[in-house]
Design a protein around this nucleic acid. Structure first.
Length: 526
RNA sequence: GGCCCCAUCGUCUAGUUAGGCCUAGGACACUGGAUUUUCAUUCCAGUAACGGGGGUUCAAAUCCCCCUGGGGUCACCA
C-alpha cells in the first residue's frame, strides 16, 4: 500500500510556523516511504479572496522546497482539493450515515441543548446528548423537514464500548464512548462540519497516515467512529507534539504575539526582525508579520535550510549528536518512532545557530545573490546594479564575513551604500567616542592630514599610518581607532577597520572625517 | 471541572520499547579564558537535569502504583 499523507490548511492568509512543522513531518513521511504528499485546502463555504488567503501558504511551501503531489495548482486523481468543492462527496456520505442510522436529525432547539449541558456541568455530571429526536417517527421527521424546521445532523455515538487507537507517537490511547456527546456533523442545510468533512475527505483521498498536532488527539475517537460507520479503512494516526512558545509550554499562537514581544526568549529575534524590516520599510504591525509565521523568516533573510533544520529538530532527533542536517539528511533518517512526545518550545537562539551554520555553508555567489536581493529591497542599491556596484557588494559581503547570519544583516553595513551626507551616526556612540574624549577631535584632524597625504590608500598602508601616528603621538590605539570608525561608518562596531577604509576610498573617508569633526565641534560649542 | 496527553540541564534533546555499558552524553544559551587592537568568528574550559514518594529487583532515568506539576480539548470553528 502506498503511503499517502496530507496537510490540510485553512486558507487564513499566512502560514503558521508550527503548522509548517506538521506539514514537514507529513512530507517527510510520505517521501521517506515513496508515497504521496497531498495538500488539501480546508476552506469553508465561500471564502473570498482565495488568492490572498492561500497564496502565502503555497509560497511558504515553495520557499522551503516542500513539493506536493496532489493539491492546488497540480491537481490529482482524487480532486477537487478544495473542501468547499467536495460537497457532493460530503452529501453522499451524510445520506449514507442517515440511511444506516449511524446519524440522526436532531430537532432539539440549540438553546435547550445548551441549557442541559450547562446544568450537567453545574451538577458535575457527565453531559450526554438527550437524543429526544430519536423518538420521532419517520413521518414526524419528514413533516418537520417539510416544514423547514431548524435542526442539525448528529452522529450517533455507540455507547457502551471504547475506541482505541495505536498512535505512532503516543502508543495505545483509549476513550470511553459512554462519555461522548453525539457530535454535530452537519448543519440543517447539509453543510458539513470539520470532524465529518475531514473523515470523508481523508477516506476518499485514501490517506494512510494522519500526522497532525496533538491538539487534534481529542478529535480522534469521533473521527475513528465516523470512519467505521462509513466503512472506510482506518488511517494510522501520529499525533506529534505541538510547537510551544519560547520559554513556555503553551501552544505557539498568533494571538499571543504582543506577549511574545515582551518575552526575553524572543527578544533578540524581534530586534533583528524590527531592524531588518525597518530598513526594508516594512511595518511589521501593518503586514501582521511576526515570528509565528513562515513569511517573517523569508523577509528577514533566513535560509530555507536554517528554518527547515530548526523545524525538523523540534520534537525529532536523528541520534545523540547530529544537529546540522540538510533536508536530504533528515529525509534519509526520518521516522515517526523517533518523534518525541512532549511539546517542544521554539528556541530562537537555536534557530539562529542553525541558520548561521547554513549561511556559512553557502558559496560566495549564493551569499552575494541573497545580499543583493535584500539590498535592492532596502533601496540601498539600484534594481539592476552596474558592474561597479556589483563589485562593491561583493567586497562588502567578503568583508562582513560571518557577521552575516541572515541576509538582512548586510543592511547593518549600509555605510558602504549611502553618501557622506546621508550617513547616519549612532548618536550615543558618537558622543562617547568623538565628542566626549578631550583630544578625539584634534587627533582626528591630524590623522586626517596624514591619510590625505598617504600615497596608496590600501588597508595595509592605512594600518601602518595609524600605527605610526599612535607611536608618534604616544597615545593608545584605542584613543583614535574608535573615533575613526565612528567618523567613517557612523557605528561603534563593525567589520575590520582598515579594509573598511580602503573599500570606502580616500575621498569618501576624508569627507566623512571632515563631517564628523564639524558635527562634533558644533556640538561642543553648544 | 470532565476527558485525554505529557514530565531528563534555562532550552532542544540522547538514553526508556528489550533494567546493568549512565560517575546521565550532545547541541543552543550562559560564564570564564585564548585568538582577533572594535564587533563577529574560531578554539579551550566551566556551571547546569532524571519533579516527589512508595514499591519490584542483586541492580531503576529506564518496570509498576500514588502524588504533584504542566499542557491540550471540551462549538451548528477548523
Amino acid at each position: 500500500m502506498t503511503v499517502r499523507t496530507r496537510f490540510a490548511p485553512s486558507p487564513t492568509g499566512y502560514m503558521h510556523i508550527g503548522g509548517m512543522r506538521t506539514a514537514l513531518f507529513n512530507w517527510l513521511w510520505a517521501r521517506r516511504n515513496g508515497g504521496q504528499f497531498i495538500l488539501r485546502i480546508d476552506d469553508t463555504d465561500q471564502q473570498r479572496n482565495m488568492d490572498e488567503a492561500l497564496g502565502p501558504i503555497l509560497d511558504a511551501f515553495r520557499w522551503l522546497g516542500l513539493d506536493w503531489d496532489e493539491g492546488p495548482e497540480v491537481g490529482g486523481d482524487y480532486g477537487p482539493y478544495f473542501q468547499s468543492q467536495r460537497r457532493d462527496l460530503h452529501d453522499a456520505a451524510l445520506d449514507q450515515l442517515l440511511a444506516s442510522g449511524a446519524a440522526y436529525r436532531d430537532f432539539e432547539p440549540a438553546n435547550q441543548t445548551r441549557v442541559q449541558r450547562e446544568a450537567a456541568e453545574k451538577e458535575k455530571r457527565v453531559y450526554l446528548s438527550s437524543r429526544v429526536s430519536l423518538d420521532l417517527s419517520e413521518a414526524d421527521v419528514t413533516a418537520k423537514l417539510a416544514a423547514g424546521e431548524a435542526h442539525v445532523v448528529r452522529f450517533l455515538i455507540p455507547r457502551g464500548r471504547t475506541v482505541s487507537v495505536k498512535d505512532h507517537v503516543r502508543g495505545h490511547v483509549e476513550w470511553d464512548c459512554g462519555l461522548m456527546v453525539d457530535p454535530v456533523i452537519a448543519r440543517g442545510d447539509g453543510s458539513p462540519l470539520y470532524n465529518f468533512a475531514t473523515v470523508v475527505d481523508d477516506g476518499q483521498l485514501q490517506i494512510t497516515h494522519v500526522i497532525r498536532a496533538e491538539e487534534h488527539l481529542s478529535n480522534t475517537p469521533i473521527q475513528v467512529l465516523i470512519h467505521e460507520a462509513l466503512g472506510n479503512d482506518l488511517p494510522e494516526f501520529a499525533h506529534i507534539p505541538f510547537v510551544a512558545a519560547p520559554g513556555g509550554k503553551k501552544k505557539l499562537s498568533k494571538r499571543d504575539i504582543d506577549k511574545y514581544r515582551k518575552s526575553p526568549a524572543f527578544q533578540k529575534l524581534f530586534q533583528l526582525g524590527d531592524d531588518v524590516l525597518g530598513a526594508l520599510g516594512i511595518d511589521p504591525a501593518e503586514h501582521s508579520l511576526s515570528p509565528v509565521m513562515v513569511a517573517y523568516y523569508r523577509e528577514v533573510g533566513f535560509l530555507p535550510a536554517g528554518v527547515l533544520n530548526a523545524l525538523a529538530r523540534l520534537g525529532w532527533s536523528l541520534d545523540d549528536e547530529t544537529e546540522n542536517m540538510s533536508l536530504q539528511t533528515v529525509l534519509e533518517n526520518f521516522s515517526l518512532e523517533r518523534v518525541v512526545k512532549a511539546s517542544a518550545g521554539l528556541d530562537p537562539d537555536k534557530l539562529m545557530s542553525y541558520q548561521s551554520y547554513w549561511m556559512g555553508q553557502l558559496s560566495a555567489d549564493e551569499k552575494l545573490l541573497g545580499c543583493l536581493d535584500i539590498l535592492v529591497r532596502a533601496d540601498l542599491i539600484p534594481e539592476n546594479p552596474d558592474a561597479d556596484t556589483l563589485a562593491l557588494v561583493t567586497r562588502v559581503v567578503e568583508l562582513a564575513a560571518d557577521r552575516i547570519r541572515v541576509f538582512g544583516d548586510i543592511l547593518q553595513m549600509d555605510e558602504f551604500f549611502v553618501s557622506t551626507e546621508t550617513l547616519k551616526y549612532s548618536e550615543k556612540d558618537f558622543q562617547k567616542r568623538v565628542v566626549k574624549p578631550e583630544q578625539a577631535v584634534d587627533l582626528l584632524r591630524e590623522l586626517r592630514q596624514l591619510l590625505a597625504a598617504t600615497e596608496d590608500f590600501t588597508a595595509e598602508a592605512m594600518h601602518k599610518v595609524v600605527e605610526g601616528f599612535v607611536e608618534q603621538k604616544e597615545i593608545k590605539f584605542g584613543q583614535i581607532a574608535p573615533a575613526l570608525r565612528l567618523a567613517v561608518t557612523g557605528k561603534a562596531k563593525g567589520a575590520d577597520l582598515f579594509p573598511t577604509l580602503e573599500l570606502l576610498g580616500r575621498d569618501e573617508c576624508l569627507r566623512r572625517i571632515d563631517r564628523a569633526i564639524g558635527t562634533a565641534e558644533s556640538m561642543k560649542v553648544v
